[in-house]
């Protein structure tokens, strides 16, 4: 099995896994970082969202062989102690119900805001439309993103 040299949350990791293994399962099973969630495995729910060089990606749909030198950031590495403005806004609005989708929502929102620090309602809805929340916290997610945008500006 090939060996991959990865940068995950600023740390160097060498992991030996099959080339077609999705980054999601490398993170969860091999790097033991389980904050990134499995929801569908086919890029439809966004629960597995991570950043590759700062860009939001569905880790279930990216094989480890495609990562190369790109830096991986997961929810565990987004900030120290949950202090990213998006995480703080999430706590302020008590967004979570079951909480399972929220790592993916937060990672997606954080990437959205770094690209577009002042998104309109329509832009937020469009950018977040790929992240399913089965518990229906969308209204809070939307409000929290606006709060985070204010915090960041």
């Amino acid at each position: 099995m090939p060996v991959y040299k990865l940068t995950i949350n600023g740390e160097q990791r060498e992991l030996s896994v099959a080339a077609d293994t999705p980054v999601l399962w490398v993170l969860r099973d091999h790097a033991h970082l389980v904050g990134t969630k499995y929801g569908c495995g086919i890029g439809q729910c966004g629960a597995c969202t991570i950043h590759l060089d700062g860009v939001a990606m569905r880790s279930c749909s990216v094989p480890i062989s495609a990562v190369g030198k790109q830096k991986i950031t997961t929810i565990e590495g987004l900030s120290a102690n949950g202090t990213h403005p998006v995480q703080e806004a999430w706590l302020e609005h008590d967004v979570a119900q079951c909480g399972y989708c929220q790592a993916g929502q937060i990672m997606n929102a954080a990437a959205l805001l770094s690209d577009n620090p002042n998104p309109s309602d329509t832009e937020i809805s469009a950018m977040m439309n790929g992240n399913i929340c089965r518990c229906g916290t969308y209204t809070r997610i939307h409000t929290a993103i606006k709060t985070a945008a204010e915090k960041m500006s």
């Binding site: 099973d29 904050g35 969630k37 706590l91 979570a96 909480g99 399972y100 929220q102």
Partner: peptide, 29 residues
């Protein structure tokens, strides 16, 4: 009085909380 979810911080920081996150020594999938 409104109180925040006691698991709020572990949720937004991706701590192992859920069944799917359970890991034990020698565990197989």
């Amino acid at each position: 009085k409104p109180q925040k979810n006691v698991d709020g911080l572990p949720i937004v920081t991706g701590k192992p909380l859920f069944g799917l996150d359970v890991q034990h020594e020698g565990m197989l999938i």
